[in-house]
Amino acid sequence: MDRLIDNPYLPYVMTVERITQEAPGVKTLRLRFKNPEEAENFQFRAGQFAEYSAFGEGECTFCIASPPTRKGYVECTFRQAGRVTSGLSRLEEGQEMGFRGPFGNTFPIEEWKGKNLLFVAGGIALPPMRCVIWNVLDRRKEFGNVTIIYGAKSVADLVYKDELKEWDERPDVQLYTTVDPGGETPDWKGKVGFTPAVLEQVAPSAENTVAIVCGPPVMIKFSFPVLEKLGFRDDAIFTTLENRMKCGIGKCGRCNVGKLYVCKDGPVFTKAQLNGLPPEY
């Protein structure tokens, strides 16, 4: 069946290949295309998102969490919150589900070659960044210092624990993990404090550095002034907007902010771009 030519709402059928329980209520699904031809033709870039279907429940929007440098599958990480994410959570390995995408713009990774990269992520917002991080680490020599500051409510809520360990052990990555006060366990070796505060404490240099900030609106709100203080220019700060979406292709009207559609013109924006937008995100 021709899809995206005839009917942009018709998903690819995917097989759930692997399910990882990342944290309480948070899962990663690794999906493979049912049709090998579709897998062959599928391409995406870091930052893009997709619509994931649990048939019988509906569709939900998340970024593609796996890097484009890893061919043959896509991964998504989500927190079970509503009807569709609950449906996706109930899927078992081997079951089929739907996938529409890739949609939206990308992180301009090529423009970041030779620069230092600072990743600031909160909670369930590590997935969009993980795609970029692995993309960068798979081409490590092309970039300068890589610093990752990642915070979650509690130790249990940290996602990608194996990968955090792997990043922590790499000499070419500076990783700081933090949990909100009260979220630590007796054997917690990381930091305790809200992500913006830890950012201020780590105080990475803004010199030749690009900051990528993803997280809940409140974390972004308090991280921006810290970055500003550290000397980051607005066009060197990247984030993703999380406006509600349904179609993913610039038609249903939900994600419209000013003359932009987050699904088409985003989800990746620089702080400089956000400054020119109505504050409706």
């Binding site: 709402y9 048939f55 019988g56 429940e57 509906g58 569709e59 349904k246 179609c247 038609k251 249903c252 009207g253 939900r254």
Partner: peptide, 10 residues
């Protein structure tokens, strides 16, 4: 007006 919703009819 063209805004729309997408819903499931299981």
């Amino acid at each position: 007006c063209a805004c729309f919703d997408i819903q499931e009819d299981p």
